[in-house]
Design a protein around this nucleic acid. Structure first.
Lengths: 213, 213
DNA sequence: ATTACTATATAGCGAGTAT
DNA sequence: TATACTCGCTATATAGTAA
């Protein structure tokens, strides 16, 4: 049994996001169609993984979701929404950040493939935008894909590319968002363009920008 | 692994509800973190359960969701929505149906418990309303619960009760919806009231009514 | 490349039970 | 009543391989 499903079933018993449900392992087992022992184990694992908080009592246990547990369910909801209701425009606000400076090297490596897909030679560098939370289903908004490849003895992962509109104050520029297929969990968007976006738009570290996907 | 999550992962690869994705069992296995053989088996089972349609080809397989498969995901999305966004008012349209006539007997058995919870002696009968599709998360809208019990050597399952407003033409009456806790999958709502709803509202089999939960 | 069979390994379930 | 441990068994995953 996938523990996400246990989490999902628990959510059905909770009145709302930050409420607490009192349930015995026997009851939970019955709802899930497993034994009391197994349900007990599930709860122990969920607690260990910090997806639920629980207080084991003489009669049943009080269970509530942690921030992480809720995030998993929210993410599932978002993903399903993207799928069922179709693509949507996303607007993300973030701050320009310095990045690790690797952007230039990577773009150089991907440059010919990017040129083939987008029809222009990209500026050798990325504009990094730090966001509070990476929105779910962003990969779905991609319109181009570059598969993984090998070059100079190194392997480069596949990337997805989405068209975006970068806004800073009253200025707005059409450019492209690069998304590694292997989910990296740093909360940064990497944006590429024909030109140097920093100088073109007058951006500095910390500048508040809006990304319209 | 719960197959619902295989379905969920597949949905993430599909562009939209009725599109087709071409994927090999190897690829799917990698995304799910299982072997190619296991992924292959998953797909076979999903197909057998009529949750996906697939065309196995020389290079990968074309996969799309069936109506049933999509319904499962939609249901998950709805349930998560109820949980994350909070309770909502539901409006269900259905037709008065004849039912199996067991309603009277059951209500008689539950009568004293209903009276204790709702403060009135219910009419010995239920108004059955046939709906197209049972909306997800309806149980969540219950405000009272009667636990399972034994009586006259038989056991009666727990039920949940929700306040509803029954509308027929310009008439509207406040009454109660009875929901067995053990999910029964017939698409009928069972409504109880102090009085005989059929005669009070002039309902006949097939009358189109609106149920506001 | 693929899919998917059979055989083997192992992960996970639940009975029994202690607490 | 509960929770949750050990342990044997079975259900499920993977390796090897055929088609």
């Amino acid at each position: 049994m996938d523990l996400r499903f246990v989490l999902f079933e628990l959510s059905r018993m909770l009145e709302c996001v930050d409420s607490v449900v009192s349930i015995s392992s026997k009851q939970l087992g019955t709802t899930l169609g497993v034994s009391q022992q197994t349900a007990s184990r599930y709860l122990a694992i969920l607690e260990k993984n910090r997806l639920i908080k629980r207080v084991v009592k003489k009669r049943g246990q009080d269970i509530s979701l942690t921030k992480e547990g809720l995030a998993i369910l929210k993410n599932m909801h978002d993903e399903l929404g993207f799928f069922i209701q179709g693509k949507k425009m996303l607007e993300i606000t973030g701050k320009v950040s310095i990045g690790i400076g690797e952007g230039a090297y990577y773009i150089k490596m991907y440059a010919d493939k990017i040129e083939k897909e987008l029809g222009f030679k990209p500026y050798y560098g990325t504009l990094n935008v730090k966001v509070e939370e990476m929105p779910a289903g962003m990969q779905r908004l991609a319109f181009k894909k570059i598969p993984s490849f090998e070059k100079e003895g190194r392997s480069f992962g596949g990337i997805k590319i989405a068209k975006i509109r970068l806004k800073y104050g009253k200025k707005a520029v059409d450019c492209y968002l690069i998304m590694p297929e292997r989910t990296h969990h740093k909360n940064e968007l990497e944006i590429i363009s024909k030109e140097n976006l920093r100088s073109k738009m007058g951006l500095k570290d910390g500048s508040l920008v809006i990304v319209e996907v």
